[in-house]
């Protein structure tokens, strides 16, 4: 698909711009659906019905919300650092959007088939941290600054178990390319790395328990990286009003939310590609061509997005010390042990 788009615009940067803008076609509708999904799931878990008046079962409510946000006055506090205040939401979104470059929506998709895909995702998401720190400081508000520092500390801590868990799978797979990772798992549900990957039976059986532990580590740590409950101390509304985006209104606030939801899909998609076969169909070659690949990828991604929403509305918030305890004393040692075990298995089989 990339070659086709580029051939339409020879000798021009326009082709690259169009390829770069393709993920927006996914993110914008996805954000609308997920806002609706989140509100409805939250409501039904708490025995409410959520919005019912705009359209059938409130389906038009996300559009109404967007229209409202577009019309809102864009307030910049007088004491804020104006330039950094305006720049910060875009920086947060850029850090998230850049990771979409390597997500393999299907085997034909125009994104980059970067050899260092996973490494790139881990590295680029650190731009988001800088954006959050920038927004917190530029707001010139104690709550914002506290929220930003908490967010940065949390994301930096939880990057380590995530990276260790992903490295372990990379050691098994022998590649960091997300597209190749998906291809390796395209032989049906039992070739997915959560079930030990496409290997002989003994190696598979040895890998399965380790992969389950690694999957749980990755799921927990990725939830912390998107700052959602139970790891939402950066936005803890009972302590910090709204954390680092307290002072933002109108479209800037909307961009923060767009970035958060896009980031939610990115971490889910990474989990899907690394452990659950990416765009590969669970039935091997059946329903595994063209548009079906896109269907499976989005379906699996949305499944993990809904798990995140489900946990958000189930679990209470952790305290700061508990949060650091989980990362440094539970997830990181377990991930290290798993990595050593994976190394032994890879070397001996």
């Amino acid at each position: 698909m990339a070659e086709w788009i580029l051939s339409q615009f020879p000798d021009s940067i326009l082709g690259y711009v169009i390829i770069g803008a393709l993920p927006l076609l996914f993110i914008l509708p996805y954000a609308l659906v997920t806002i609706y999904l989140e509100m409805k799931m939250a409501a039904h878990m708490q025995d409410r019905v959520a919005y019912m008046r705009t359209g059938w079962h409130g389906t038009l409510q996300p559009f109404a919300d967007i229209l409202k946000l577009l019309q809102k006055e864009d307030i910049i506090p007088t004491a804020a650092d104006k330039f950094l205040f305006i720049l910060a939401p875009y920086l947060v979104f850029i850090g998230t959007y850049a990771t979409f470059a390597v997500l393999p929506f299907s085997s034909q998709y125009a994104g980059s088939e970067l050899y260092l895909g996973i490494y790139y995702v881990i590295a680029v998401s650190s731009i988001t941290v800088v954006g959050i720190l920038m927004s917190g400081w530029a707001s010139n508000n104690k709550w914002s600054l506290f929220g930003a520092l908490r967010a940065a500390a949390q994301i930096v801590s939880y990057e380590i178990p995530t990276a260790l868990a992903l490295i372990s799978v990379v050691m098994v797979a022998g590649t960091m390319n997300l597209q190749v990772l998906s291809q390796q798992q395209s032989g049906g549900i039992f070739d997915w790395y959560i079930f030990g990957g496409p290997f002989p039976i003994v190696k598979k059986l040895l890998l399965i328990p380790i992969m389950f532990v690694l999957f749980l580590i990755q799921l927990t740590a990725s939830m912390a990286e998107v700052n959602r409950t139970p790891f939402d101390i950066p936005e803890a509304e009972s302590e910090l009003v709204q954390g680092y985006n307290t002072e933002y209104s109108g479209m800037k606030f909307a961009i923060f939310y767009l970035a958060e939801y896009a980031n939610l899909f990115v971490v889910s998609a990474i989990t899907v590609v690394v452990f659950f076969g990416g765009w590969a169909s669970p039935f091997g070659n059946y329903l595994n061509s063209g548009g079906w690949e896109l269907f499976w990828f989005v379906l699996k991604g949305m499944f993990f997005v809904s798990i995140n929403i489900w946990l958000r509305w189930t679990l209470p918030r952790l305290r700061v010390d508990q949060l650091m305890y989980v990362s440094w004393k539970v997830l990181t040692p377990f991930a290290l042990v798993c990595m050593i075990l994976v190394g032994l298995i890879v070397v001996s089989f």
Binding site: Y115, A123, V129, W137, L145, L149
Partner: peptide, 26 residues
């Protein structure tokens, strides 16, 4: 130099710059 480019981002932006900002803000 793909590896170097990504390492530059990971080490300098994700590590050193965040540490620096923490230091400045605290």
């Amino acid at each position: 130099a793909d590896f170097l480019a990504i390492t530059q981002l990971l080490v300098y932006v994700g590590g050193i710059l965040v540490l620096l900002l923490f230091g400045v803000m605290l």
